[in-house]
Design a protein around this nucleic acid. Structure first.
Length: 278
DNA sequence: AAGAATCCCAACCGCTGTCAT
DNA sequence: TATGACAGCGGTTGGGATTCT
């Protein structure tokens, strides 16, 4: 590339740190009138003693009128988990699927909430696979120890037990593969992570997976990349089918995939049935 | 009530990619 | 092709807010 990388704001005379409401007013007022144009030129034109980069960040992460503030909804949280399992730390790409949310906000939410949540559940937050070291696998081992009991509990068992059961089943299957799984939407339950392709390749054709309708709609309208990614991941043709309502009342879109091979009885009999009954 | 510990998030930093010349 | 200018991205940090002891 050309010149050496530029530093953030080299000029010591330029202000750094938190923005005042007066500075915000100046920035918003200028952009409302003239648009931001060149960020480098903007501070002088707007009467701000800041560097252009600082102005751009303040605008894009905080002052933009279309920014949605406040807590992330469960649906947004699910979307982030789903997309992160596919895209990794591509915060701007993930933000593109969450209208009104900035990449910075999503990144912060991930680092302060979701990452910890996955670790507590015994998953590696980067690969979304069960962690293999002995201490982090403890939840899985404890769950496995109780698997027999859980299998025969009543159908109205609570969600946490259902969750543990699903994780145990996933642990039994996913640890046999090196590829990463993807997340699965279970309505108002915690997310569950689908086994990697090597497991799915053993399934019968036309099994259903559920992913949030918002993602499917978004990708159909604006971005085929995610569907392509899913298709490549499972070596399948991914297509949207009509949305359905699960028994928690949440509407989900579904997509079907074609795979060949021998059905995996554990998966078919227990795991998939469990999910589709949620 | 007060100090310590932890959480949270806006802002900063350094790097890369793209475009114009 | 080489260079410079700039926008954008992802990782990190500082410090205020909140919770714990």
């Amino acid at each position: 590339m050309g010149r050496p990388p530029p530093s953030f704001c080299h000029d010591d005379n330029l202000k750094k740190g938190p923005w005042t409401s007066e500075e915000d007013d100046k920035l918003v007022g200028y952009i409302d009138k003239h648009g931001h144009g060149s960020w480098r030129a903007l501070p002088k034109l707007a009467g701000l003693n800041r560097c252009g980069k600082s102005c751009r960040l303040r605008w894009t992460n905080y002052l933009r009128p279309d920014i949605k503030r406040g807590k992330f909804s469960p649906e947004e949280e699910q979307t982030i988990l789903n997309l992160h399992s596919i895209l990794g730390n591509k915060w701007s790409a993930i933000a593109g699927h969450l209208p009104g949310r900035t990449d910075n906000e999503i990144k912060n939410f991930w680092n302060t909430h979701l990452k910890k949540k996955l670790i507590q559940m015994g998953f590696d937050p980067m690969t979304h696979l069960p962690r293999t070291d002995i201490f982090s696998s403890l939840p899985h081992l404890l769950a496995l120890a109780n698997l027999g009991e859980m299998m025969y509990r009543s159908p109205w068992e609570d969600h946490s037990v259902q969750m543990a059961k699903l994780q145990c089943l996933q642990y039994l299957t996913a640890t046999t593969s090196t590829s990463s799984p993807t997340t699965l939407n279970l309505g108002n339950m915690e997310p569950v992570f689908l086994p990697p392709p090597s497991i799915l390749e053993q399934q019968q054709p036309q099994q259903l997976q559920m992913i949030p309708a918002s993602i499917i709609n978004e990708t159909n309208d604006h971005d085929d990349q995610l569907l392509d990614t899913l298709g490549n991941r499972y070596n399948t043709q991914v297509q949207q089918t009509p949305s359905l309502m699960n028994n928690t009342g949440d509407v989900c879109s579904t997509f079907s995939y074609d795979v060949c091979g021998t059905p995996n009885s554990l998966w078919n009999d227990l795991f998939l049935d469990d999910i589709l009954l949620q």
